[in-house]
Nucleic acid binder design. Structure first.
Lengths: 245, 245
DNA sequence: GAGTGGTCTAGACCACAAA
DNA sequence: TTGTGGTCTAGACCACTCA
């Protein structure tokens, strides 16, 4: 188990990050087998010509990602199991695109209006403040899969309908320089009303997945509130939860 | 904004952790207002008689929790917004108990059997290996709310039916010394079959939330695989997703 | 230019696990 | 007893932001 590890001190990429990425690649690629020991930090530091804190920072990043486990008196081990590929705060558009589903979007409504009580509370703004409201129908292979309604602060979303039809909301927000941080979601289910059934090409009473989501950027500001309906026959949420230490 | 901060060097609690907890409490309690600057690290270190790396470690912990934001050239700020109590990898039992719902459990089945293909794949073990199978009905106020079926490695769960009726699975696992780390979940919905409807006191065709969950401990081992049904009329999942950096 | 966080070093001592 | 990770120090230089 003599890994090829090296750092480039002339690179602008932080040393700990270079090491962290190399270790992650090695784990991903199977060069570091699950359960195998990484070798102690001091020896590793010496081998790479780094200080121990720098090596620790690299290792810690992978521990946080759940790829490594550290045990006092034992050593650092690659985690067992086939876990991996952390699930991100997902965009339905990106999810579908990644699955080769060729997503399409039809913008049903795009306007600025004064926030009602519910939207104001969700966005953490005063009632009557202007908000942007977007209603979209998401389709794959020409069939509807979800009905999406979002409320956003006006400065977050300046996109026009044609842009919203070409890509997802999260990608537009990221492109506008917003750094997403986290989202609080509530997922439930209920039977489709007649209107919903028609919109989604389901029968009345068909089970629908409901999702309400409030998204925060890295300063803690609410950047989006969404209330969505998915055809349960064609979609399920996949996500990963971490235990807080 | 002169916070009361101090550390006890005779305590076994790490210094960075003491500081981190005090800062978190101050934010929680409102002594540190959202958006306010924390003051620079070096000054803070000097004031507390700590080194800068130690102070940084304390701050970093809160940045990871999403309570603080650091900006180069600016400073460290308390996040805006009604920061969220982070949602944990949840136990239905604990959720209900916390909501004052007085959960009850009826164990329908508890036995050891050879793993079928699906359970073996989910648990990452060989087909035919012994697994513990638990089927439970969860009720609140005497009414059914969920039907829970779990598969577990035999060494993870040694509890008897009466213990399972008194508390939740996660609490039993924690009590057995297992450190839970993360869970991969898939949430969907479908219409109830006749048998499911009877079990859950719903009508046939009523919308049910479905959840499949694979739970990992801190070594990456699969410690539980669950396949659950919830009455959509009485339950929804709340959770928080973080963006991976 | 002044002030901030980001990175890095070269040590130190301690707590815990295993042989 | 030995080896591991956990914590901590007292500096250093750099990159970025803002006035």
């Amino acid at each position: 188990m003599d890994l090829q590890l090296s750092v480039d001190r002339s690179s602008p990429v932080p040393l700990y990050f270079q090491l962290s990425q190399q270790l992650e690649a090695a784990i991903e690629h199977g060069d570091l087998a699950p359960g195998s020991l990484l070798g102690n930090e001091i020896e590793l530091a010496g081998r790479l010509g780094l200080s121990r804190p720098t090596v620790r920072q690299a290792i810690q990043a992978l521990v946080d990602k759940g790829l490594l486990v550290r045990r006092r008196g034992i050593g650092t081990q690659v985690v067992h199991s086939q876990v991996r590929r952390p699930l991100e705060l997902s965009s339905l558009y990106d999810d579908l695109e990644a699955a080769g589903q060729q997503p399409a979007t039809r913008v049903l409504r795009l306007e600025t209006q004064e926030a009602g009580a519910e939207a104001a509370a969700a966005l953490g703004i005063a009632e009557g403040t202007e908000v942007r409201v977007v209603e979209r129908l998401r389709l794959t292979h020409g069939e509807p899969i979800a009905y999406l309604r979002n409320h956003l602060p006006p400065d977050v979303l300046k996109a026009e309908a044609d842009e919203l039809e070409r890509t997802g909301l999260y990608r537009l927000m990221r492109g506008a320089g917003i750094t997403l941080h986290s989202a609080r979601q509530s997922v439930g289910a209920r039977a489709a009303t007649a209107a919903e059934a028609e919109l989604l090409d389901e029968r009345r009473g068909a089970p629908l997945l409901t999702m309400q989501r409030t998204t925060f950027d890295d300063t803690g500001r609410v950047v989006e509130f969404g209330s969505h309906l998915y055809r349960a026959s064609r979609y399920a949420f996949d996500f990963q939860l971490l235990v807080r230490s």
